[in-house]
Design a protein around this nucleic acid. Structure first.
Length: 210
DNA sequence: ATCCCGAGGG
DNA sequence: CCCTCTGGAT
């Protein structure tokens, strides 16, 4: 089967299988989503959602977080892991957002990735979810693993995988495609085992590395 | 390539 | 015990 045909089948299957796919981080504004997404690195969304209510109560916006005491912030976000790096990044990012972006989360990738703690994955999530701008396909550990197993890319770095997927998937499907690959990676094609016996994508899968 | 880092699952 | 969780910076 030719690659574009397989991709279109994958996109269609995912839309049928996971119509509900949505970001599972709790947030009420682009700023809160940015903070939650930075915290989600190497951490489950559930755990992030456990710490953000107190975080947003004590430091409601970038102005407040810019003036936060790092030790106090570290204590609040400790359970998400990497807490020293994340606290330092968030306070510094808050200062930049206040000083250079009028307190608003920037609407483009280049501005977002200059913020400490924000790479392409986080930038693509924030733009797609908060602003509905399909700036790029967010490539996290799940998207990387599942896309490679399916045979949609042979690349090994997130940047190249992102470019490969963006050349194959129509731009108006990017946001949902990423969310659904993540969901499939969590529920079926897990890191430990791809569970091919119960996977409805098996017919269009290259089963790379299985 | 390595480091940051806690928590839960197999 | 080892692996993994929506990574990013050095």
């Amino acid at each position: 089967m030719e690659i574009h045909e397989r991709v279109s089948l994958v996109v269609r299957f995912l839309a049928e299988e996971y119509p509900e796919a949505a970001c599972e981080l709790d947030y009420r504004s682009p700023w809160e989503l940015l903070v939650a997404t930075v915290l989600s690195a190497q951490c489950t969304d559930r755990r992030v959602n456990q710490v953000t209510p107190e975080l947003f109560r004590r430091w409601p916006g970038p102005t407040e977080l810019a003036a936060a005491d790092s030790a106090e912030l570290e204590a609040v976000i400790r359970s998400t892991g990497f807490f020293r790096n994340k606290a330092r990044s968030l306070i510094s990012a808050a200062r930049t957002v206040v000083a250079e972006h009028g307190g608003q989360v920037p609407r483009d990738v280049d501005a977002l990735i200059t913020l400490p703690g924000v790479g392409r994955k986080t930038a693509n999530v924030v733009l797609g979810e908060a602003y509905r701008i399909p700036a790029g396909i967010a490539v996290d550990t799940h998207v990387q693993r599942v896309a490679r197993r399916l045979g949609l890319t042979g690349a090994k770095t997130p940047a190249t995988i992102e470019a490969d997927l963006e050349s194959l998937v129509p731009q108006d499907r990017w946001i949902g495609f990423s969310l659904r690959l993540v969901l499939h990676g969590r529920r079926v094609c897990t890191a430990r085992s791809p569970h091919c016996e119960t996977c409805r994508l098996e017919a269009v899968c290259a089963r790379v590395g299985v």
